[in-house]
Design a protein around this nucleic acid. Structure first.
Lengths: 115, 115
DNA sequence: TCCATAATTCGAGAAATATCGAATTATAAA
DNA sequence: TTTATAATTCGATATTTCTCGAATTATGGA
């Protein structure tokens, strides 16, 4: 994950409605939730939600799949993991002991120079 | 960390200049870096940087300390860890196996109902 | 005290974002 | 084919965010 992608993911999550969407989808699991159901549960207009869903999808945090008339959205775990890796790699660079017990379980790739 | 604080932290990191600042401070370590040096290294105007620094500090991700005429900023590891905990707790809720090897090393506190 | 330096605050303008109602596209059922 | 449903796209507006120059505050040294 490069810096640009990380910014997209972080800013996607840094908004009230989108964080709600994300949390709901993570809880819902791989089966996902239809956009309409999501709009009803979160009390957001369908078109507004659509904009937010597209931002989260563009950031690689959720995935969309058509299911009849509905479109099911689900958490995209590869993208989520990529964000974690980026943060861990960055946060713990040089000071792995400071980022908690999980830091040492990852091997930061120092050689990969990103921008 | 509640939802509001998480949004502040995520959106603070979801911006080009601020992510640069954050990465630089994490790399710099606990001694920190003066605001002026930071402005020079990152090629940002002092007043613009000041705005970004205050956003990161408000989010609990960095700390400020006066050192003579300068003000040294440094990564605030407690705040960083809090963000990690929030993400891990949320991402892995119900599906710990999906968020990578570090997920299981944290014990999610299911009882703490936040908004 | 007076001056220089470091940083922040203020006020304004430009750009990006969030939200909405209306219109459109795509699918399914009658 | 016609109608209904699900979701997105479009166009507009309100709000927020980013950036800047100028002014202000705080500290240290002459």
């Amino acid at each position: 994950m490069d810096k640009k992608a990380a910014i997209a993911a972080l800013s996607a999550l840094g908004q009230d409605t989108r964080l709600d969407v994300f949390r709901h989808l993570v809880t819902a699991g791989p089966e996902g939730v239809g956009a309409g159901d999501l709009a009803q549960v979160l009390n957001v207009r369908a078109n507004t939600l659509s904009t937010h869903l597209s931002a989260l999808a563009r950031a690689g945090l959720i995935a969309a799949e058509r299911d009849g008339r509905a479109i099911r959205y689900s958490a995209h775990y590869d993208g989520i993991r990529a964000l974690f890796d980026f943060l861990l790699h960055d946060c713990c660079k040089g000071r792995p002991e400071l980022c908690g017990p999980f830091a040492s379980s990852r091997s930061p790739d120092i050689t990969k120079a990103e921008q």
